[in-house]
Nucleic acid binder design. Structure first.
Length: 787
DNA sequence: AAGCGGATTTTTTTT
DNA sequence: AAATCCGCTT
């Protein structure tokens, strides 16, 4: 990064004492007494900017100007001379957020902001710290950062080395455990024995330790280590911790609700000394609990940092009245929250619409029609987003958009550097750069296929382990023996010669030229050119992009660093398109019009989230709904379908409880079949949420299971074997199903499932044994009584 | 060593 | 329905 040349700045002498009282600082403060950057802030925002000393928690609801507060606060610290740019630690979660913040600070106070060398993600800052003190935690400063795939490969090796059946105890699962431990700041020695023992008959802790040992041998770390090793470093070397505590006069954290325990500990160590820690976040937007984020961190802030100032930003500058009230009403149903009430001075605007569709295809069709109508009214497509709960919902919507010729773009998906072709290309470069990189070598030794399969690799491994040398070294030895069959032996020899040649090349050619050559001569480019699958062209495109982007870096080392932590696909596509993404990917974005399909029980709230995390899971799902709604500036449109195919099977579904959580005055029901009438649906849920009944096997699975195993007669069923609370019946049936009067034993005809016999009546839901389709639960409006 | 076919699995995703 | 994985065959 560019270092600031503007003025003397104690950037590299960590021991240099702060200079807030210095003449230069005071002089600089005097230059800008008016602080023009503070203009236009509302009182709360201004308070958040000016409360520079001590712990501060800024609870910033959606659309309340959070980023503005954060950037202005940094500008304020610098402009008033309270700190040099290099003395401010500013942490974000994504590189994108870090980049945007840097840009915005620059636009407020100019290029001084370039001197903020400690603005970045937890991981990039952790990397920086570790590289400086690598030897103290048993690494060399040029350690490599492993991606998920390398990690998995390594774990497989560890599991096998311990003589454990990888099929019974999959590496993926172990990776999950280790990841979880690292998220919680636990090293191999700190994991509770009972917990570690749950994996592989008590070998969990041992595998964790073995994995860490292997990482050290390879001079590698995984993402979790970037934080964990910092913790260890600081705990074991208080003098070094002190240097950092002195350096970081002010600390800021964005999206605090997403921090995990390790990150919390990391921050706490640093903040202990000066306590100038400002955390900005929104407990109502915590949606990453499933990957270790602890909402508790934000809920407990005042407790953890006594004397903390808490500032609430509740003025929303994004959405119109109805949307905001709908979102507020929804989130108010959550128990565990600090409580904020968003308000707007904007007009009420359109109500949030709720549309019932017959099935998911119908739903996609309705959305497509509305988009076309909006487009016809000159609504820019780039201001329209469709937010889904799970990626699987995208396909049908994409199909529809393609049919209609509506241009769209999918946001999210696999990251550029996670793609196989990029990882492969990088692996080649890693081996050229550092032949001892076993993981990289193993990855590409047989890509493209050269006939060096498992058997050959095994031989290499055996020698490498016996002689305690890297695989490449072992390979050099083996090709001189006759241990391998002639063919693989010759192939391997050729490959080694190639690597030698490429390494020489890198002395004279530029990095990107070397990459180009390696990819061509190794046959890698060729492999994709011969590939006839649909995405082969895209992959070649990505490889080109990779080679091109290398030109911007002085050496391979810094490029690899960049790529393992930062690199993203370039999204410089400015064409007019509708955006399609998951709700998770939508956080932080906003659009004029937002479509929210799939608000059905089981899908959203997601059944699995409920099964695995109970009430906490439900609340996180509700926060997700809240995030979805608050993405909309002027129009939010909710959809649900009565039939949806899940894993290839048609299921009839029931509107999400979140639909019922919306205040009636802020919504309008469109095209809803009679029985979806809003007032009624809130009273006749299939199964009101009540802890115990939702605990384990998912309601739907339980339902399905019951349907398939319980083939007893009516008597058993009629005698009230229905689990869970008793539902209000009768009244609504009479009201909504009018003359139909469905009764147990009656014959009905369903548009999709054909004829069947009613097994049970439950409000406006019927359990029907269909002649062809088996037992299903359907809404009575979708069947006709048969004579 | 590689490729086919049956079996199994199926959320959300950053670094 | 689809994609991925695993094991068996060639």
């Amino acid at each position: 990064m560019n270092q600031s040349e503007q003025r003397p700045d104690p950037q590299d002498s960590l021991a240099h004492e702060p200079a807030s009282g210095s003449l230069s600082a005071r002089a600089r403060a005097a230059v800008a007494p008016q602080s023009p950057y503070l203009n236009g802030l509302n009182p709360e925002q201004r308070a958040a900017v000016e409360a520079t000393e001590g712990p501060v928690l800024v609870l910033a609801g959606a659309g309340t100007g959070k980023t503005r507060v954060l950037t202005t606060r940094i500008a304020h610290l610098i402009a008033t001379g309270k700190a040099y740019p290099s003395q401010i630690l500013a942490v974000t979660f994504t590189n994108k957020a870090a980049r945007e913040m840097r840009e915005r600070i620059t636009s407020v106070i100019g290029p001084v902001a370039e001197g903020m060398q400690w603005l970045g993600t937890f991981h990039s800052i952790g990397t920086k710290v570790l590289r400086r003190h690598a030897e103290l935690v048993g690494l060399r400063s040029d350690f490599t950062i492993l991606g998920t795939d390398d990690q998995l490969r390594l774990m497989k090796q560890v599991i096998e080395a311990e003589g454990i059946d990888e099929k019974r105890w999959p590496a993926r699962q172990l990776a999950g455990h280790i990841d979880g431990w690292k998220n919680r700041g636990l090293g191999p020695d700190q994991v509770a024995a009972g917990e570690a023992g749950a994996f592989a008959n008590g070998k969990g802790g041992r595998l964790y330790r073995a994995y860490q040992d292997r990482l050290k041998t390879l001079n590698a770390v995984d993402f979790g280590d970037l934080l964990l090793e910092c913790l260890r470093l600081w705990r074991e070397h208080p003098d070094i911790l002190e240097q950092y505590q002195n350096r970081f006069r002010y600390m800021l954290v964005d999206e605090y609700q997403d921090t995990n325990v390790a990150q919390y500990l990391w921050l706490r160590l640093l903040a202990q000394a000066r306590k100038n820690l400002c955390c900005v976040g929104d407990d109502d937007q915590s949606i990453y609990g499933w990957r270790g984020a602890e909402v508790d961190n934000i809920l407990r802030f005042e407790h953890d940092f006594p004397g903390a100032t808490v500032i609430r930003l509740e003025r929303n500058y994004r959405s119109t009245g109805h949307i905001l009230s709908a979102a507020s009403g929804l989130i108010a149903k959550n128990q565990g929250r600090l409580g904020k009430t968003l308000r707007t001075e904007d007009e009420p605007g359109e109500k949030v619409s709720i549309t019932g569709a017959w099935d998911s295809e119908d739903e996609a069709r309705l959305i497509g029609e509305e988009i076309e109508a909006l487009h016809a009214k000159k609504h820019p497509l780039s201001e329209i987003a469709i937010l889904v709960r799970i990626s699987a919902q995208m396909r049908e919507i994409e199909d529809r958009l393609v049919t209609l010729g509506v241009p769209y773009r999918v946001i999210g998906g696999p990251r550029f550097y996670e793609r196989a072709e990029i990882r492969d290309a990088l692996a080649y470069l890693r081996v050229v750069n550092q032949p001892a990189d076993d993981l990289a070598f193993e990855r590409i030794v047989n890509v493209p296929k050269r006939g060096l399969g498992d058997a050959t690799i095994q031989v290499l491994h055996n020698h490498a382990r016996a002689a305690r040398v890297p695989l490449v070294e072992a390979a050099r030895f083996i090709v001189e023996t006759d241990e391998l069959k002639p063919k693989p032996r010759a192939t391997l020899r050729d490959l080694l010669i190639s690597f030698g040649r490429w390494a020489k090349l890198s002395e004279t050619l530029s990095q990107s030229e070397v990459a180009q050559t390696v990819l061509e001569e190794s046959g890698y480019t060729d492999m994709w050119q011969k590939d006839k699958s649909a995405d082969a062209a895209g992959r070649l495109e990505n490889l080109k992009e990779l080679v091109r982007s290398m030109e911007e870096f002085p050496d391979l080392q810094s490029f690899l660093e960049h790529v393992s932590l930062v690199m993203e696909a370039n999204e410089s596509d400015t064409t007019e398109r509708v955006s399609l993404m998951t709700l998770h990917a939508a956080k932080g974005l906003e659009f004029d019009t937002v479509f929210l399909p799939g608000w059905e029980e089981g899908l959203f709230p997601n059944q699995r989230a409920l099964d695995e995390s109970g009430r906490a899971g439900l609340e996180e799902e509700r926060r997700l709904a809240h995030v979805g709604l608050t993405r909309a500036r002027r129009r939010a449109k909710i959809f649900f379908a009565s039939n949806r195919r899940i894993h290839g099977l048609w299921n009839s579904t029931v509107p999400s409880r979140f639909v019922d959580d919306l205040p009636e005055t802020n919504v309008e029901i469109l095209e809803a079949p009679a029985n979806f009438s809003y007032g009624g649906s809130r009273f006749d849920r299939m199964q009101p949420f009540s802890g115990s009944s939702y605990q384990t096997p998912g309601w739907q699975r339980a339902q399905a299971h019951r349907a398939s195993t319980d083939d007893g007669g009516y008597s058993a069923r009629r005698s009230g074997d229905r689990r869970g609370p008793v539902l209000i019946e009768g009244e609504l049936v009479a009201k909504s199903s009018g003359g139909s009067g469905f009764a147990v034993g009656g014959r009905v005809l369903h548009t999709k499932f054909g004829p069947g016999t009613i097994e049970a009546v439950d409000g406006n839901k019927l359990t029907v044994e269909f002649d062809k389709a088996g037992r299903k639960m359907v809404l009575d409006s979708f069947v006709k009584a048969m004579g």
